[in-house]
Simulated scan of single mutants.
Amino acid sequence: MSIILSLETSTHVCSVALHADGTLLASAVTYREQSHASKLAVLIDQVLQLADVTMAQLSAVAVSSGPGSYTGLRIGTSTAKGLCYALNIPLIGVGALDSLAWAAGPFNTLQALLCPMIDARRMEVYCQLLDAQYGIVGPVEAKVIDTESFREALEAGPVLFFGNGAAKCQGVIQHKNAFFLADVHPTADTVGKLAWEKFQRNGTEDLVTFEPFYLKEFMIKTPVKQEVAAEANKTV
């Protein structure tokens, strides 16, 4: 029996799950913003205790590989890699948009194109188009949303938008074929299901080189006071 511990930290939701041969044993989740650093280890302990499983029994650790929150992905990846190094077990990366699409799939009664969206601040989202069977229709991209976004796909048929980036797009994308699904998040439950499929195909990661898929550079903002001081120093 193969037991996989899964971590999902790509959005504000932090979740952990434990699967045995693809069957869910236990899961735990917190919806608190910026709680990943303080809660991830606690959630891991919870699911292990609930399932009466020890660290030594783990066959692999799966982690959301992004795109998503820079800080969340760093915390999830460093935790997963640390466990894999310590236990000498493989790491499995699962795309956050894939996980999100599979979470929404059961609600896709229209057999529409699936468009998972993860918030990337302002009117930008990380997104991808997939068909109703999760086949890739378009690339993963960081997309600034306007009234013309997804026009070609929407003219061809229904598109289902969901994820924490979709709500802010609902007032902008108003085509008759645009449908929105609320309260769908990438979860460790779904990461674990997809990880089990990859594990059977030996789809593991290189522990040394694996890094999250950030999609775009992390921007560090300089406080306004520091910017003013820097400009003053230039003129001296």
Rank of each mutant, 00 (worst) to 15 (best):
M1Y: 03
I3W: 06
S6Q: 04
S10Y: 04
V13L: 15
V16A: 14
L24G: 00
A26E: 08
E33Q: 11
E33A: 06
S35K: 06
L40E: 14
L40W: 11
L43K: 07
Q46V: 05
V47N: 08
L48I: 12
T54D: 08
T54H: 14
Q57I: 03
A60D: 05
A60F: 11
S64K: 10
G66C: 11
G68Y: 14
T71I: 15
L73R: 09
L73T: 13
R74M: 15
I75E: 05
L83A: 00
C84D: 01
A86V: 01
I89F: 04
L91E: 06
V94A: 01
D98Q: 08
A101R: 00
A101Y: 00
F107Q: 08
F107I: 06
N108Y: 00
L110Y: 11
A112I: 11
C115T: 09
M117S: 12
D119Y: 04
E124T: 13
Y126N: 03
Q128A: 03
L130W: 00
L130R: 07
A132V: 02
Y134L: 15
V140T: 12
V140A: 13
E141S: 12
A142L: 11
A142R: 07
V144E: 03
I145S: 06
E148L: 04
S149V: 10
F150E: 05
F150I: 01
R151L: 10
E152Q: 13
A153I: 09
E155Y: 12
E155F: 13
G157N: 05
P158I: 08
V159A: 01
V159Q: 03
L160K: 01
L160S: 02
A166S: 12
C169K: 02
Q170F: 01
G171C: 07
N177V: 07
L181R: 11
T190M: 10
G192V: 02
A195K: 04
E197G: 09
F199E: 12
Q200G: 15
Q200P: 06
R201I: 09
G203Y: 14
E205W: 13
P212R: 01
P212C: 02
F213Y: 04
F213C: 00
M219V: 09
K221W: 02
K221I: 00
P223N: 01
Q226E: 02
E227A: 02
V228K: 00
V228H: 06
N233G: 04
V236M: 03
V236T: 01
